[in-house]
Computed example of a mutant assay.
Amino acid sequence: MTATDATKLTRSELAKYVDHTLLKTDATPEQVSALLEEAKVLGTYSICVSPSMLPVEGEKGDIHIATVCGFPSGKHHPGVKAVEAARSVAEGAEEIDMVIDIAQLKAGRADLVQQDIEQVRAAAPKPVILKVIIESAALTDDEIVAACKASEAAGADFVKTSTGFHPAGGASVEAVKLMRESVGDRLGVKASGGIRDYETAVAMINAGASRLGLSGTAAVLGGAPE
């Protein structure tokens, strides 16, 4: 998709890229219910909530349910991540966004990263969508490529930039481009973390993002053409 094409996305078309997200530590069931209702009004692809908020109550309509796993540090034992993922699927999650242990990449152990992802994949088999959060802002380019290769080898469906909780920052256009180059059209790329306006959202799509993680969805969509 070219920049010209992306800027022509209508508000409703852009909304279909969005995982409408609420991962605050003090989020309540009432706020999750409100998130679902807002997602239906905005027409987003999904909502993304913490595993403890599952199952999501209420009529979901066309809204998919996503959750996180090993969030936000990724420092959980792979077996624990697998159990968390399996329970989330049993409680209605259709998509799992898991966090890798980025220290393993930095130690040159992409094999352990792959094994971590493989355990979650086995616990949440297709058609569940598995997205792998690599914390791209905390990685070198070589580490980003290694994380993408490990994710693809392990059977993931997406690679995702960020949790939004790491001090190194969130998504960047450069990271999204590199991730897209690394996975080609074989996997999706989700840009998440720090996307707060329409212009940034369009830049991420231009760079190769096929999904966006947004907490301020209404504000971002508000900048889109009708």
Rank of each mutant, 00 (worst) to 15 (best):
S88R: 03
M98H: 08
V18L: 01
K40S: 11
V132W: 00
K131F: 03
P29H: 06
E91V: 03
Q114S: 13
V145E: 10
S162I: 02
V132P: 00
L54Q: 07
A93N: 02
Q115W: 12
S151A: 15
H166D: 14
V49Y: 13
V128W: 12
R196S: 07
R11E: 04
G70R: 05
T67F: 09
F71E: 02
R186M: 08
Y198E: 06
N206F: 03
V145P: 02
L221P: 07
T7P: 00
A86I: 05
V49P: 10
Y45T: 08
K40I: 08
A209L: 05
A66G: 13
H64E: 14
I129C: 11
T44Y: 03
G184Y: 06
E199N: 09
F165P: 00
D197S: 11
C69W: 01
G92R: 08
K131A: 01
P29W: 00
V220C: 02
F158H: 02
T44P: 09
K149H: 13
I205T: 01
K81V: 05
R109L: 09
T7N: 11
A85N: 05
K160E: 00
K106G: 08
I129F: 10
K8N: 15
R87I: 13
H77N: 14
P51L: 14
V49D: 08
A153R: 13
K24G: 10
K81I: 02
V68A: 01
D19A: 08
A191N: 02
K60Y: 05
A85M: 07
A124M: 12
E199T: 13
A123G: 12
